[in-house]
Design a protein around this nucleic acid. Structure first.
Length: 517
RNA sequence: GCUCCUAUCGUCUAGUGGUUAGGACGCAUGAUUCUCAAUCAUGUAACCGGGGUUCGACUCCCCGUAGGAGCACCA
């Protein structure tokens, strides 16, 4: 009861403060955009949208060794592809060195931070020693005891140094929006490194300064960053900044329930894009990893997600990334795409597998090299015929409900683009028919089809079915026919294929099939 | 080793003291069907363990156990 009242008050209070919600998504460009980052970005975005707040993109590139421009580009492109729009940014930490500098100097001057000259070897040895004694490994604060004069003389000698923040020993607790009250004993946390030097801040300092300077109200991030929170709170307090709200999201897990990583398979968003997953699939899927609306509805558009999203429905435990479910959702969205749009999306895959070849429509590239003004025609690689868009739509349409991901389209529809089919003649045999019976069956199909003048699916189906129904097993006529047309043991239906192929090609393929027997 | 977090079908999850523990993916079976899909129907399968609290615990508390994350001059 008391809890319920407290919760209501909390909700009321947060409603009051919601006017100025500002969240940030702060990836570091040290690798291709990770699927887990995408989820963090999504939850930040949903939270911001839901509360009519601002979503800020901040590139955390303080690590100049590992940060690469192409990764930043990948982040920006990925967000765009997903439809996650940022209201501000990208801010780059590498461009804000003077901002951090004044705070580092302030901490140093106030004695809240100090120069440390311990070597990495010393530190490593100390860590091993502590662990062997069963203690929490942490910096022992050795250099904090150096006098000002000692520091000066060591600095003059040009010794390598790092700046550490003095962790005050107390209990730090904060209220996590998904986990509730969390408490850390900072006696177990060593003095944290905040900068390599005045111009080179490190993560924990840069985060705290930026969140303050950018007026961030809610920090929504992965659970793996939770151990940093008490350190950051202490730095905030030392700098006189106000506390932000925290929400630590459960991790996305691999099939063995450890943090999703390369060894589990694809982890970068671009890989999923290349495999032919649609952005709406990823959004829908990722939203349901660690969150649910509390209803039985599972298919959600971006707008519906924004409407329904609520932080208190976020799960506490990690969620296994389930590719079967991703495929299912993708299949759903593929089935619901317009045929024009779906065909358009399939074109790159057909080009990639060299089924079709693009040719520039106009040699002249307009001055406005915007992309919009450049258009392509396509030719079918094998026959060098021009690709007719209606033909393409029909081909794709035949597979729309069978397609799970775009990259599968090639192997499904290749026979519509090839002059000669390659398959084993034995495949033409239905059940225990003899080769002679199959040959006769194909002859029958040729005869029936030859008589059709108005070539369309309906007429083809009727003519063929009329005949097929006369025999006990329709497969005797239809299976050899379908295999002859597609060269595959499973495919779209024979009437549809015949319709798309046209009369002449259909009959040609039947004749070719007889040779294979 | 230390700190923190977590725990309902294989997986994602609903559930906030009294339910035949619900849905979805997957899987299986059937209908449809020349095949493969799609679709429809049916089935399959879960409250980590032990103590409390309570008339009653999946639900609240404690202790285990298991899993995860973190313990950088990375973020």
């Amino acid at each position: 009861m008391i809890e319920a009242i407290a919760k209501t008050l909390e909700q009321t209070f947060s409603f009051v403060t919601n006017g100025g919600v500002r969240v940030r998504f702060a990836p570091s460009p040290t690798g291709f955009f990770h699927i887990g980052s995408a989820r963090t970005a999504l939850f930040n975005y949903l939270f911001a949208q839901k509360n009519k707040g601002a979503f800020i993109l901040r590139i955390e590139d303080t690590d100049t060794e590992r940060s690469k421009p192409e990764f930043e580009e990948d982040i920006i492109e990925s967000l765009k592809w997903l439809g996650i729009k940022y209201d501000e940014g990208p801010h780059r930490q590498s461009e804000r060195k003077n901002v951090y500098r004044k705070y580092i100097e302030k901490l140093l001057k106030e004695g809240r931070a100090y120069y440390c000259f311990c070597t990495e070897e010393d530190l490593e040895a100390k860590k091993q020693e502590q662990m062997s004694r069963g203690e929490a490994p942490m910096y022992d604060g050795k250099c904090s005891k150096l006098s000002e004069k000692e520091v000066e003389s060591i600095v003059e000698k040009g010794e390598r140094s790092i700046i550490r923040f003095k962790i005050s020993n107390k209990k730090v607790s904060f209220n996590d929006m998904v986990r509730g009250k969390i408490e850390f004993d900072t006696n177990l946390i060593g003095d944290v490194t905040i900068a390599k030097n005045l111009d080179t801040p490190l993560y924990n300092l840069a985060v705290v300064v930026d969140d303050y300077e950018m007026k961030i109200t809610h920090v929504i991030r992965g659970e793996d960053l939770m151990p940093n929170t008490p350190k950051q709170i202490l730095i905030q307090e030392a700098l006189g900044f106000s506390r932000v709200e925290y929400a630590h999201l459960p991790l996305i897990l691999g099939s063995d329930r450890s943090k999703l990583s390369k060894r589990h398979g694809s982890t970068s968003l671009r890989e999923y894009k290349e495999l032919g997953y649609l952005p709406e699939t990823l959004i829908n899927f990722l939203a349901f990893l660690g969150w649910n609306p509390g209803t039985e509805k599972e298919i959600f558009s971006f707008n519906a997600l924004i409407k329904e999203f609520s932080m208190d429905k976020v799960q506490k435990s990690g969620a296994v990334f389930n590719i079967d479910r991703l495929d299912y959702i993708n299949g759903f969205y593929i089935r619901h795409k317009s045929l024009d749009k779906l065909s358009e999306l399939c074109i790159p895959y057909l080009i990639q597998s060299e089924l079709i070849t693009p040719i520039l429509k106009s040699e002249k590239v307009p001055a406005t090299f915007g992309g919009e003004s450049i258009s392509f025609d396509y030719i079918i690689s094998d026959t060098e015929e021009k690709l007719d868009r209606d033909y393409l739509n029909k081909v794709i349409g035949a597979y729309q409900e069978r397609l799970k991901k775009l990259s599968e389209i090639n192997e499904l529809v290749d026979y519509f683009f090839k002059e000669k089919l390659e398959y084993d003649g034995g495949l033409l045999v239905w059940k225990d028919m003899t080769k002679e019976e199959v040959s006769l069956s194909i002859d029958k199909a040729i005869k029936i089809l030859s008589k059709i003048n108005d070539w369309n699916k309906k007429n083809i189906e009727k003519a063929l079915l009329d005949e097929a129904n006369k025999i006990k097993d329709r497969g005797e006529l239809l299976w050899p026919l379908r295999v002859a047309l597609s060269g595959k043991k499973s495919s779209a239906g024979p009437f549809e294929i015949a319709d798309i192929l046209g009369k002449q090609k259909t009959i040609n393929r039947l004749k070719q099939a007889k040779i294979k027997l």
